[in-house]
């Protein structure tokens, strides 16, 4: 499968990437690891006329401690997130979710920022960012702005990042003592989740992000509210599919997905220490 022809521009800095995006407008598409975009281009579901390659911006690949947060550069690969000791000790849920993305070859190329900015409801990483209450740092030629993960994912493959902006950093509150669990249901190794759940239990508080339960990565707010009101895992998880518009496809219809969400959230809550 051969993509439609395009012009290739390699960005030498984040600013250069933003200038190229501004120059080419909606004709251009950013490429980092390319493991979401290249398949879409090969199926000709995406036909950008200009590719702006940000894959060489090594200064956007990092994990740093900053007060009560971890700052993770958008170009940090899944493999590096998975094996980073700071991520493991401070946000173990994210390391676990990263370790479940695709397969080793995919994790050697795919990036946390690319996975988030692609905005795919079936992706693993966004559910963890929602559960962990991440802040997304979006850069433009006029400066940076911060968007909460809840407001970042707008629709199917649509995020708060505009055509002339670049997701540069993800900030995650450190939760070294929290319980967590990443639940992923699929039929075959390496497959996308049919449904997945990222569950964080931090004392009396709880954060739950769902995979493939709507047209975008979503928070299971009703479950969180029930847990905060004192419900146990079984009672709270009954609300996992409340107000959700789950997709139906060859793998599962919406009704089965709703069932899976309730089961996975219950298992996740129990594994994270909230029974």
């Amino acid at each position: 499968m051969i993509p439609v022809a395009f012009d290739y521009r390699r960005a030498s800095s984040a600013r250069h990437a933003l200038e190229l995006l501004t120059e080419h407008g909606d004709e251009a598409k950013l490429i980092a690891g390319g493991h979401s975009l290249v398949p879409l281009m090969k199926f000709r579901l995406a036909t950008p006329s200009v590719l702006v390659d940000i894959g060489r911006l090594d200064d956007l690949s990092y994990v740093r401690e900053s007060g009560g947060h971890l700052r993770i550069g958008a170009l940090t690969r899944h493999f590096d997130v998975e094996h980073d000791p700071l991520v493991a000790s401070q946000c173990g849920l994210l390391a676990e979710a990263a370790s479940k993305v695709g397969d080793p070859q995919v994790r050697h190329r795919g990036t946390i920022g690319g996975s988030a900015a692609h905005g795919d409801p079936a992706s693993d990483i966004p559910s963890a960012l929602i559960a962990l209450r991440a802040t997304m740092v979006i850069s433009g030629l006029d400066g940076d702005r911060e968007v909460q993960a809840d407001d970042f994912f707008i629709g199917f493959l649509e995020t708060a990042v505009s055509e002339t902006e670049l997701l540069t950093e993800i900030r995650i509150p450190k939760v070294p003592d929290a319980g967590w669990s990443f639940q992923k249901f699929n039929r075959r190794a390496q497959d996308w989740a049919i449904v997945g759940a990222s569950v964080l239990v931090d004392g009396d508080d709880v954060g739950i992000g769902l995979v493939n339960m709507d047209n975008r990565p979503v928070r299971a707010s009703s479950v969180e509210d029930a847990v905060r009101a004192g419900a146990d895992a079984a009672a709270a998880s009954a609300h996992a599919a409340d107000d959700r518009d789950a997709p139906s496809d060859l793998n599962a219809n919406a009704e089965f997905r709703a069932h899976l969400a309730r089961v996975l959230v219950r298992r996740g809550l129990e594994a994270a220490g909230r029974s």
């Binding site: 290739y8 493991h35 397969d103 070859q105 050697h108 190329r109």
Partner: peptide, 21 residues
């Protein structure tokens, strides 16, 4: 990028060469 038949090493790490320009 599912089957891995095209796997090569890029700077020593396994990657799928059908999904990289």
């Amino acid at each position: 990028s599912s089957c891995g038949a095209c796997t090569v090493h890029l700077d020593g790490e396994a990657v799928k060469s059908c999904t990289i320009f």
